[in-house]
Nucleic acid binder design. Structure first.
Length: 574
DNA sequence: GCCGTTTTCGGCCCGACTGTTTTCAGTCG
């Protein structure tokens, strides 16, 4: 798939044009194209072959020609030429917070600065003061920006952000001076990584801000004003709190939730209707016609309210106008966790503790899916140990008497040749089978997975692409082939909820949906304290427009068993 | 460069903050 590569080219193209001081609308067109292509769930090469490029919003004749040129030749002549006109290190300098294209251009032209090292040296030597408009504060800001860039480990994983935000909101929401409080930004949209953590509140400004900066987990106070404060929490992440007036709380929440692309599209619609939308409300002339809640604003525009997770301008605005928004799966509809490890393999919690946690969560069932024998590193279970573990599960189920049901499961290894790590004779004794790839991460694993899908006892393919966010790329896969086979055989695709996996990811969920695939949510917990991550998986599913009926965890226990048996029947093994 | 039940040309989202400006430019979200 060449989507990412193309998106990067158009983004760099926009950087270069900005550096050159080109028409801003021209630049926006490239940025927009980069975003559209990056968010695409389909392979752009396939779209091109089918002649569907023109169906992409924001991709006109000229960009289409460039895309086709790239797909055909592997490069775009005009871009190659453009790149020779600017120093290639400008991209690094643009990453410094507070430094934009105008500054980079000035630094390059006046002082010949081409790299971070050049810039650091120039600051030390006081050379920046030679530049027009550069005095102490501006130079200091750049110096701090470099420091920030060098120590920032990039974006924050969603799971980390959610963990921090949940704790802060829990600590503040019960206070009398807090009227409303909510997470905003990409954390509210449940994006797999987030830039910074935003919280929005309304109530008594000064008291809220004071309470926020005095929370027990605050490591450092960066800024405190009457409407805004910024702290660093003990995890080392920055958290912003804004306090707003109650009358514009909805407008502020809408505004700060984004996405940027969603908001731009929405405001374009407002302008066409003679309205103006900003963080204070929806205005007709001087008069505010909505702003207290998000619903009020969207309703005033004649729309349903798109759930935050899908506000990415990928069709949700059109769907909201047509009253055809998807009925997204909700956390409260999840009846159980379908991927959990106990201390029989490499989990840290005893089955007893997992039961306790599951009961707290109000689950109807959980699947205990310990590793299989070949995964020695994870204490995979021999057939004998598996039987002994199953015996323990039976005992617990008797004791629980239906209050909660433990499914006898496994996360069976898909071996390099596609065979499974247990024989069918063993698998048939289990209630629920997740099959996963745990080796050869650099090879194309399509055939391995297809073979596992063809096994009548495999109910779910675990973490299907093998990616680990920020650490390991997905292995090469023909996802369309896999999704097709999964849908045909009645095999679910996992949305692994563990915070550094989220696999399938949002765009792949949306692709899988088109093939009629069903999804299984599993936290891959190795400790009872991991089971909260189910909400990360629900968020990912929602971002992929996944509906309740498409998620097997929303089934009652008996329907879930039907799901398992349906595949066995289809293959004639029962 | 894109786009059009007002337009194939002339528009293209909106505001805050910062530093330096004494009316604004650059950057950011």
């Amino acid at each position: 798939m060449k989507n990412k590569e193309l998106a990067r080219i158009f983004d760099e193209w926009a950087d270069i044009l900005e550096f050159k001081g080109d028409n801003p609308y021209h630049i926006r067109a490239y940025r927009n194209a980069a975003r559209i292509i990056n968010d695409l769930s389909e392979d752009i090469e396939v779209l091109a072959k089918e002649g569907k490029l023109s169906s992409l919003p924001g991709i006109g004749k000229r960009l289409q020609a460039k895309i086709l040129e790239f797909l055909k030749t592997g490069k775009i002549e005009e871009f190659e030429k453009l790149k020779t006109e600017v120093p290639d290190t400008i991209f690094t300098l643009l990453d410094i917070p507070g430094v934009g294209p105008k500054t980079v251009k000035l630094l390059y032209e006046q002082l010949g600065i081409r790299s971070l090292e050049d810039l650091k040296r120039a600051i030390e030597q006081g050379k920046l003061y030679q530049l027009p408009g550069f005095r102490q504060k501006k130079v200091e800001k750049i110096r701090k920006g470099i420091e920030l860039l060098e120590k920032s480990h990039g974006r924050i994983l969603l799971g980390v952000a959610v963990f921090i935000v949940d704790r802060i909101i829990e600590q503040l929401k019960s206070q009398a001076f807090v009227e409303h409080i909510s997470v905003a930004g990409s954390t509210r949209r449940m994006k797999e990584t987030v830039g910074d953590i935003d919280i929005l509140a309304t109530g008594k400004n000064l008291e809220i801000i004071e309470a926020f900066v005095s929370l027990p987990n605050v490591k450092e106070l960066l800024w405190k004003g009457t409407k805004k404060a910024t702290i660093i929490v003990e995890e080392g992440e920055q958290v912003d709190l804004r306090v707003t007036e109650p009358d514009c709380y909805g407008a502020a929440l809408q505004y700060f939730t984004g996405s940027r692309a969603h908001n731009i599209h929405l405001r374009t619609i407002c302008v066409k209707n003679g309205l103006k939308l900003n963080e204070y409300g929806l205005f007709k002339g001087e008069q505010r016609i909505a702003g207290k809640t998000e619903e009020e604003i969207y309703a005033a525009l004649g729309m349903d309210t798109p759930p935050p997770e899908i506000r990415e301008d990928t069709g949700e605005i059109e769907a909201a106008f047509e009253h055809k928004l998807p009925d997204l799966v909700e956390l409260s509809e999840i009846k159980g966790d379908l991927h959990i490890h106990s201390n029989w393999s490499d989990g840290a919690s005893k089955i007893e503790d997992l039961i306790d946690e599951a009961l707290k969560r109000g689950y109807e069932y959980i699947a205990i899916t310990d590793h299989s024998k070949s995964l020695k590193i994870a204490s995979g279970l021999s057939e004998e140990d598996l039987m002994r573990r199953n015996y323990e599960i039976d005992k617990w189920n008797e004791k629980l008497n239906g209050k909660l049901v433990l499914l006898k499961g496994t996360e069976v290894d898909i071996l390099p040749d596609g065979r499974l790590d247990y024989d069918d004779e063993v698998l048939k004794t289990l209630d629920f089978v997740v099959a996963s790839v745990h080796s050869r991460f650099n090879e194309d694993n399509t055939n391995r997975i297809l073979k596992a899908i063809e096994n009548p006892y495999v109910n779910v393919i675990g973490h299907p692409t093998g990616r680990v966010i920020g650490a390991r790329e997905a292995y090469p896969l023909d996802l369309e082939k896999i999704f097709k086979a999964a849908a045909e055989t009645g095999t679910a695709m996992e949305i692994n909820c563990y915070y550094n996996r989220l696999d399938l990811k949002d765009s792949n969920c949306r692709l899988a949906k088109r093939f009629g695939v069903r999804f299984s949510l599993g936290t891959d917990s190795h400790h009872r304290d991991h089971m909260w991550m189910i909400k990360l998986g629900v968020g990912t599913a929602r971002r992929g427009w996944v509906e309740k009926r498409e998620v097997i965890n929303t089934l009652t226990l008996s329907k879930l068993k039907d799901f398992v048996m349906a595949k066995r029947k289809k293959f004639g093994v029962v």
